[in-house]
Nucleic acid binder design. Structure first.
Length: 578
RNA sequence: GCCCCCUUAGCUCAGUUGGAUAGAGCAUCGGACUUCUAAUCCGAGGGUCAGAGGUUCAAAUCCUCUAGGGGGUACCA
């Protein structure tokens, strides 16, 4: 679509006496599609020309000479509205999509640049809560989107597997034991033990001390501590992998904080060498008071490392070993200060690449507190956070039931139910701006109607279904000028802007831009489709009119391609039937 | 206290770089299946864009203040 803006600027450049580069950014999209494809507002000319913008628009509409693909210009109040040639547009857009197929939407502005994305990053010894879907799927979508735009991307699942909590967990294991005969999965028992350890530490100082001691042993490499801890990690990873498998998510690296433990002293030494580290209240810190921030803690009074220390060692490792150009942290907004501190420390240390590290914040998942009725941050500890697995299972159950009722003969129904259930949960999370807080509402997630994953999937399945029923026409050149209905014109234009939409999502690190665009395409297509219910003349397949069938099938195929490509970027599966 | 984010229809949210009449979905009400998949579509009602100032030819959008909600604020991650 950018190329067409250029063509319109070309028409204007002579009359305005301005180069096309200054005209292109002034072009707008009219609020009504029927008015045209692009609008040029005449307000800014009013001063210089000392005329009312309405007059200027009317005058320009008279005198401009148009060249293909610009088909028409009309003054509409203070705006000059340009309409592109449908025939040319349809041909170019649909041919491009047919030619590029699953590559449509890709670009190369990221070629040669490497991005490391830190996402998902759950803590071990706990089940994945619903809120983990956010970092996991936003990160996954960003990875796909950036790859589509030519970046080389490596994902790292930075497991929270190190720190005092795991000393406490070992202490709890020692004190309370493990029930091998328990009739629950290991992860469930481990999660319960974790909760018990935290609670015990609050009321029993001796236990808390034992926990800290175990963590010191762990850091010192004590074999017994290591063995227990390793087992906790393994149980957790086995559980995480089940959910990641269901979501279709994988990582290039799953290193975890523990991996960077040997690098932490070096990281501190590095900062000390640059004169940044001071001692304060018995702890090692980088003072950030000059920047209105609390100090960045590197070592506690007891010598144990912290979250910041590990993130510091991690980013230094990533830069050194993976040589990223950009490092993205897909972590909730609650940690903004932590990342501001981290990046400031890197900057103060003189690493010019600190400017290429970015926190990609997203809103919290709020749960309704049953007592106060208020929306607040969910907590696995307080037991008021839903498990991701549970929500996914509920969504799959919804899909299964719906299909049993509406499409009982569907082959591979269980697979499709999984795809639809997962799609419902994932799309629900990605369709809105990532910085918004999310009010957890399972009923809304399970509703397959309206602006939902199942709606997107259903639309794609409709395309697949009609294309499967269409006669073989691969060798026939479609007559694009037959696509003259308003819905067809609108669809072609939305398909045309898809690559720019993906580029925008990559630039702003915002997957919802893609989701919203796909929703708009699906809405147009479904509207288009339903017109054929009443009026057989407007159906895609016209046994009585081969030319129309070919042209409409070409449009349908393009819609399907874009929906599939876009859903792939978002991590939403696209079954061909449901 | 200080810092960050949010506030658009009953509910959940879109709203491009400031641009023309602020749009969807859910819910409610009324319609459309002898059909290319009705998980769809069409229509209706529903708005002081939290409030007040300011900048501008033009503000939901930018600035200031106020109110309400969420989060954070050195030894948790």
């Amino acid at each position: 679509m950018e190329a067409y803006k250029e063509a319109i600027a070309e028409c204007l450049t002579e009359s305005l006496g301005q180069p096309t580069e200054t005209i292109v950014p002034m072009l707008r999209i009219p609020p009504e599609a029927a008015w045209g494809d692009f609008a040029f507002p005449c307000f800014t000319l009013a001063k210089a020309w000392r005329q009312a913008p309405q007059q200027i628009a009317a005058q320009l509409a008279q005198q401009l000479t148009l060249a293909a693909p610009v088909a028409a210009v009309a003054a509409h109040g203070p705006y000059l509205n340009f309409t592109l040639d449908d025939d040319i547009l349809s041909r170019e857009v649909l041919q491009t999509i047919a030619r590029e197929g699953e590559r449509y939407g890709r670009g190369d502005e990221g070629r040669g640049k490497k991005v490391v994305i830190d996402y998902s990053s759950p803590n071990i010894a706990k089940e994945l809560a619903f809120h983990h879907v956010r970092s996991t799927m936003i990160g996954h979508a960003l990875k796909q989107i950036l790859e589509a735009r030519g970046y080389t991307v490596e994902g790292d699942n930075h497991l929270g597997d190190w720190g005092t909590p795991f000393g406490l967990l070992i202490a709890a294991y020692e004190r309370f034991g493990w029930d091998d005969a328990a009739d629950v999965e290991d992860i469930v028992q481990l999660n319960a033990l974790y909760v018990r350890a935290r609670n015990e530490a609050k009321v029993d100082a001796g236990f808390a001390a034992a926990g800290r001691h175990w963590f010191q042993r762990l850091e010192a490499g004590d074999p017994q501590a290591r063995k227990r801890w390793r087992w906790f990690v393994d149980v957790s990873l086995a559980e995480f992998d089940k959910v990641y498998g269901l979501l279709g998510v994988s990582f290039e690296h799953t290193l975890g904080e523990s991996f960077f433990e040997p690098y932490m002293d070096d990281a501190i030494t590095e900062l000390q060498g640059r004169g940044l580290v001071t001692e304060s209240q018995g702890a090692l810190v980088v003072d950030l008071s000059a920047y209105d921030m609390p100090p960045c803690l590197l070592k506690k009074q007891d010598g144990a490392t912290l979250y910041s220390t590990r993130d510091l060692a991690t980013v230094l490792y990533r830069k050194r070993e993976w040589r990223f150009d950009t490092c993205l942290y897909v972590v909730d907004m609650g940690q903004s200060l932590h990342f501001a501190q981290l990046f400031k420390v890197l900057e103060l240390a003189g690493f010019e690449w600190a400017a290429n590290c970015h926190h990609i914040p997203f809103g919290l998942v709020l749960q309704r507190n049953p007592e106060s009725g208020k929306w607040e941050k969910g907590s696995t500890r307080q037991g008021n956070a839903s498990l991701l697995k549970t929500v996914l299972e509920a969504a799959i159950g919804m899909a299964r039931e719906k299909m049993a009722a509406s499409n009982p003969d569907l082959p591979d129904a269980e697979l499709v139910a999984r795809q639809v259930g997962v799609g419902a949960v994932v799309f629900n999370d990605l369709k809105n701006r990532r910085t918004r807080d999310v009010k957890f509402d399972q009923e809304a997630i399970l509703n397959p109607q309206g602006e939902t994953g199942p709606y997107m999937q259903y639309t794609q399945a409709r395309c697949a279904s009609v294309l499967a029923a269409a006669p073989e026409t691969a060798s026939v050149e479609p007559l694009y000028e037959l696509l003259q209905q308003p819905e067809e014109r609108a669809l072609v234009r939305k398909l045309a802007t898809y690559p720019a939409v993906v580029a925008e999502a990559a630039r702003t690190w915002e997957p919802s831009v893609v989701a919203q665009h796909l929703l708009a395409i699906a809405a147009d297509f479904n509207s288009y489709w339903t017109r054929g219910n009443k009026d057989p003349g407007r159906r895609i397949l016209r046994p009585d009119a081969a030319d129309l069938t070919v042209a409409r099938a070409a449009l349908t195929a393009a819609v399907r391609t874009v929906l599939c490509n876009g859903l792939k970027l978002l991590g939403v599966p696209a079954p061909d039937a449901m």
